[in-house]
Amino acid sequence: MDGDNKNNKIVLKLSITALLMFGFGFALVPLYDVFCEVTGINGKTESESYQGKSFQKDESRQIKVQFIARNNDAMPWFFNPTEKTLMVNPGESILTYFHAKNPTLERMVAQAIPSVSPGRAANYFHKTACFCFEQQPLSGLDSIKMPLIFVVDPDLPKDIKTITLAYTLYDITDKAAIAPDNKAKVSMSSRDNDFLTRRD
């Protein structure tokens, strides 16, 4: 009987450990995001509009900002930056556009995912407005001019002279179950919203 008691204790402790480790696997998901955000690695930029302090324009240097637009997998849209490169001063707010066209006859929803290289620059590249913060629905044969407003942080390390901002456009028509022409906006990184807007 005494032995049974001792066994039960160990089984209980170890089972709880196993359950906690199962939870830890899931905790890695937010931890990973937090880690990437804090360290600015992985080229992940903020997923919400920049609300921080405004900057003094740094006249002493210019940064070359390159824009890349590409499609994921079988995404059929035409997707291009209106300007391929810009020379900008750190601290200065810049407006530029990306152009997208849905060449199919069907209504589709797209989501653009940004990535900054070098990864170190991601924390110094602030977007005050970006089409990537929202899903982009587009009726068949329609096209759209999508704005991006950004500012390069004057604290950007001195050795970085070029920043590349790459957008990958995903077809999320299946996931984004929004009634036609109802331009409801769904924040991009909220997994809960994905749950709510799932089309069954």
Partner: peptide, 19 residues
């Protein structure tokens, strides 16, 4: 179930899977 743990389109990350 329509989540996007590993799908970049929904804000997830395939590299996370590898980690």
């Amino acid at each position: 179930f329509g989540t996007s743990f590993f799908s970049a389109a929904g804000g997830g990350d395939p590299v996370l899977f590898q980690h």
